[in-house]
Each structure stands twice: as structure tokens, then as C-alpha cells.
Nucleic acid binder design. Structure first.
Length: 501
RNA sequence: CGCGGGGUAGAGCAAUGGCAGCUCGCCAGGCCCAUAACCUGGAGGUUGUAGGUUCGAAUCCUACCCCCGCAACCA
């Protein structure tokens, strides 16, 4: 059986979950559910990044310990992911002692391999911000927040020999051994590697208390790069021993937002190469969205909260709305009013209304609906086309076209009803009515399968209405995709699937 | 020349070399099974501008105009 390991970035726990992070996580969840549905051995990892100065600072402001802050916010993440029905297999926290121990071990290992060495870090430091800036970030040598001149400061720290990997990385990307998608993002990384010289990277800092201590040097703390990135290995049980890679390694897909492309496209494989680890199969950086044409920001007050949206539309519908709003991989725009629009069009008037139509028509007759002798080849063919488009879309992470293929089937069924007029057949030709309704029930059964990764609960509700929830959930997808073999013995009208908003 | 995305019907978007499509809205009709839902037809476009390549361009090339994201809290 083939395996499927997928990761999201780990989110920084200085605040509660953000709609952007929810977007990434949701996309990963749909893929995880899709691959599970296909019967693959699937592992879905997400989690939180919990070390660093900023955490310590926020904790101090709130008069709690960093540990308490992390516990609170990590719990918040788990709760929101629960609301959104995120089916992760493991929630990794970088403050987990197992993770911390592994990171320290790897750090030491890289010192032993002479890939981490001690040096002097010199940079422009803003006392107000308590952080370093690059010359480019400063305006007139001043930090934009404090309007104060940054001073040149140097400190001892440990460096990672990233420079050593520049040519290898370039070659790996060119030869598609290190796959970055979509293409624009790949070009961006290639351009960077061609024109900029990679410098060795400071892998530790002085004076940061909230972090993992450098082995044998308690004055130094391991910096975010290696600490955060190694979650992808510690999360599946790696103990830090080179060569002994976990069974799930490497990931089939690592999903990230485009903001962290460089860390994941350059530093991360650099670390893996230094460890001799196989590289992930694919790195996919999705786009960002604006809200109502403006970037989401606290000061503009247009921030959408994932929990509130789930309250308004329901978690299942929200998943659908987020992923159908614009092409995955590109930038796009969302808004509440667009969501209302699409909810009513796709879900209430489309899928939900179709379900109700068919169920009511089926309930006219108290008989069971058994597979007819004559197969409707036209209907069957349509289902085949829908699955084809759907699978191709999901394999390319085109969620919006996968969703479009579902809408295609809904529309096909609506047209089919209109042309066959089963309410008339019921009075005139009961045998034909029986066949038409059977086809429609089969159509709905396929719709339940198709919507499963996107809207697991609504999908189950459809199965339930068809009286086949238990049996279908036991079936693998391959069996579920077969046309015209299922018997419908008990139809249940049930609740309205998507009440109009 | 910091990096990147975009400009297509009233609005929002799709279409990467081959008849310019979808959703909402608008107009006319059909149906009466359904959540005032569904189906059919129609109006609405010189695809930001100018030039070029091509049998053929929204799509490729050149120049220009305009909008936006990242670079700095934030995916």
C-alpha cells in the first residue's frame, strides 16, 4: 500500500489562529482525507512553533510564563482545528521535550560534521525592537517602528554552512529532484539562487532565554530555523540519528504559504542535505488572499476570523467556500458577501436543493430502488467524466476545479430531472420512474463520495439520507466509484442540508 | 532597475496559441418534484494602451499606463 505524508507549516503561537493559517491547514486536510479515501497510508502533520523572543515578550506583557502562553495558544489552535474538522494525525509542538532533545542532538551532530561552526555575527541592531535588521530593511539607517538609528553590534554565535549547498540546490531544482510548485514560485527560487550568493546562516543567538540551549554552550540558544523546520522529522518520530529515517519519511507534499518560500525552498533542503536525508517529494507554496480587495490587517479592521466564519456558514461550508474562492496557488480575493453568494448558489440552490428534490421524488413510492437491468450509459459516462476531472484536479492541487466538477454533476442531475419529469412518470409509467429515480440516487451517492474530502459531515448526511451510511463508509473508494450496483432500501428525507442564508 | 501577481460583459472571476466561458445581477419563457429552488433562451465584450510575431493572439515578444501583494505585526 502506498503512503502519503503531508505537512503544514507549524504556526507561531504568539496569537490565536489566523484565517491564513486556516487556509493552508484546510487545504492540507482535504488532501489528507482524499488520500485516506483512496486507501493510502496517510499521515497528516501540523503543529505549533513555540520558541523565541517574541513569545517571551508577549508572555511577559500578559504576566504569565512563556510555557503558560504556549499551552494556552496551542490549545486554542487545537480547538479551532477541531472546529474546522482538521483530521491531523499528530499535532507537534516545538516545546515537546522529545522535539527539543532531537534538535539539540542534531545540532551537535552538525557541529561534529563541521557543518556548524562558531563565528561572529555582525549586524545592524535596533535597541527598541531588540532585533537585527538587514541594511535593506532600514530607511536611512533607521528602523521604521522606532525611527532610531540602528547600531552595529556583533555577537558570537554558531553558523550553518549553507553557502556550501548553493550549487547542489540549484542543480536539484533544475533537474526536478527538488520539486517546487507552482511554477512561478520555482522560478522565484531559481532566480534567487542564480543571482544571490548564499551566506552562512546564524543558527543560534545570545540572550534568548526561551529556546533550546546549544549543547555544551548554555550562553547560546538554537535559533528558529533548525528548531522549527525539524518538526517535520520529529513529528513522525525521528530521534535524530542519521540514516534511521522514519517509515513515513519523506513527505509527499509540504504545503506552505508563499511568505515562507525561501526558508522552505533553500534552508530546509540545505539542512536535509547536510544530514544526508532524502528530500521531500514536493514543496507547494500557495497564494495569499485579500479581503474585499484590501489586505487583511488589524488596523484596517477587515480581519476575518475562522471561528466566526464557521459559526456563520458551518465548518463544512466554510471549507468549501475557502477552497473554491480562487485558484489555489495564485493570489485571490475573498469576502463575506462573496461567501454568502457562493453558499446560496453552490450549496443551498445546488447540492442541497438537488438532494431534497430527489429524496422527495423517491419518497413518492414506498418501494425500494434496486439496480435496473438496463444501465443508463449516458448517466454512467457523465459520472466517469466527473471523477476524471475531479481526480486530476486534486492530484494537481486544483481544489477549485475539483469543486467545479462536483457542481457539474449537480447541474447534470438537475437537467436530467427536468428532461425526464419523474413526477409525471410516477403517474404514467411507474417502471420508468423507478429507473430514473435509481439513476438519481446513484448520482447522489457519487456526490456524497465526491464531497467527502471537502465536507465530511455533509457527505455523511447524504449517505444517511440514502440509507447507506454504514456500508459506504466501510467501502474503499474504488468500490464506491462503481456505477449501478448499490441498492437503496430506505430513503430518509432528513434535515435541509444547507438552509438558505 | 528589490521580488512577485494582476488589468477579460454592470460586479466578481475562468480560459497559456485554435469558435471568449462561468457565477451573481438584468429581460423573456418553461416546470410545478424541490430550500421562491430548477430548466431553456436572450441582452451585455473592439480581453488596460500602442506596436510586433503568426494562417490564427486574452494567451507569445517589445514598450508604456494603472492596481495589488511580499520585503516590516500578519499565511
Amino acid at each position: 500500500m502506498s503512503k502519503f505524508y503531508i505537512t503544514t507549516p507549524i504556526y507561531y503561537v504568539n496569537a490565536k489562529p489566523h484565517l491564513g493559517g486556516a487556509y493552508t491547514t484546510l487545504a492540507a486536510d482535504v488532501l489528507a482525507r482524499w488520500h485516506r479515501m483512496k486507501g493510502e497510508n496517510t499521515f497528516f502533520l501540523t503543529g505549533t512553533d513555540e520558541h523565541g523572543e517574541k513569545i517571551a515578550k508577549v508572555a511577559k506583557e500578559k504576566k504569565i510564563t512563556p510555557r503558560q502562553l504556549c499551552d494556552q495558544n496551542a490549545a486554542k489552535y487545537e480547538q479551532v482545528w477541531d472546529t474546522l474538522k482538521i483530521s491531523y494525525n499528530k499535532f507537534i509542538r516545538t516545546t515537546d521535550p522529545v522535539h527539543e532533545k532531537m534538535v539539540a542532538k542534531v545540532f551537535q551532530h552538525l557541529i561534529d560534521k563541521k557543518l556548524i561552526y562558531k563565528g561572529i555575527y555582525q549586524g545592524l541592531y535596533c535597541v527598541g525592537c531588540e532585533r537585527y535588521y538587514t541594511a535593506k530593511e532600514l530607511v536611512d539607517g533607521k528602523c521604521s517602528i522606532h525611527q532610531k538609528k540602528a547600531i552595529t553590534l556583533s555577537e558570537e554565535c554558531y553558523f550553518f554552512k549553507l553557502s556550501k549547498f548553493q550549487n547542489r540546490l540549484l542543480k536539484l531544482i533544475k533537474n526536478n529532484k527538488w520539486v517546487i510548485e507552482p511554477e512561478e514560485r520555482r522560478n522565484e527560487v531559481l532566480g534567487f539562487l542564480r543571482t544571490e550568493k548564499l551566506e552562512d546562516l546564524a543558527f543560534s543567538r545570545e540572550k534568548v532565554e526561551w529556546g533550546i540551549a546549544v549543547p555544551g554552550d548554555s550562553s547560546q540558544t538554537i535559533y528558529v530555523w533548525i528548531d522549527a523546520l525539524l518538526n517535520y522529522l520529529s513529528g513522525i518520530g525521528w530521534k535524530g540519528q542519521e540514516g534511521k529515517w522514519p517509515l513515513n519519511w519523506p513527505p509527499e507534499i509540504q504545503l506552505i504559504g508563499k511568505d515562507i518560500l525561501r526558508f522552505h525552498a533553500i534552508i530546509w533542503p540545505g539542512v536535509l542535505l547536510s544530514l544526508g536525508a532524502p528530500l521531500p517529494k514536493k514543496l507547494y507554496a500557495h497564494g495569499f488572499f485579500t479581503i474585499g480587495g484590501k489586505k487583511m490587517s488589524k488596523s484596517l479592521g477587515n480581519v476575518l476570523d475562522p471561528e466566526e466564519l464557521a459559526m456563520t456558514f458551518g465548518a463544512d461550508a466554510l471549507r468549501w467556500l475557502m477552497l473554491s474562492a480562487f485558484p489555489f496557488g495564485q493570489d485571490g480575493d475573498i469576502s463575506q458577501s462573496k461567501f454568502y453568494d457562493k453558499y446560496n448558489t453552490d450549496l443551498s440552490n445546488g447540492l442541497g436543493n438537488l438532494l431534497r428534490r430527489v429524496l422527495t421524488l423517491a419518497l413518492k413510492n414506498k418501494k425500494k430502488f434496486l439496480p435496473p437491468k438496463k444501465v443508463d450509459t449516458n448517466f454512467k459516462k457523465q459520472i466517469g467524466l466527473v471523477w476524471q476531472k475531479y481526480e486530476r484536479s486534486l492530484n494537481q492541487l486544483k481544489f477549485e476545479t475539483a469543486i467545479a466538477s462536483i457542481n457539474d454533476l449537480v447541474s447534470f442531475c438537475d437537467k436530467y430531472i427536468d428532461s425526464k419529469q419523474p413526477w409525471r412518470l410516477f403517474k404514467k409509467d411507474i417502471a420508468e420512474y423507478q429507473i430514473v429515480l435509481y439513476n438519481l440516487l446513484e448520482g447522489l451517492r457519487h456526490l456524497a463520495w465526491l464531497t467527502q474530502p471537502f465536507m465530511p459531515e455533509k457527505s455523511n448526511q447524504i449517505f444517511q439520507s440514502l440509507g447507506i451510511l454504514g456500508q459506504e463508509k466501510k467501502n474503499p473508494l474504488a468500490k464506491g466509484q462503481v456505477w449501478g450496483k448499490t441498492e437503496f432500501k430506505e430513503i430518509i428525507l432528513g434535515e435541509i442540508l444547507f438552509p438558505k442564508l
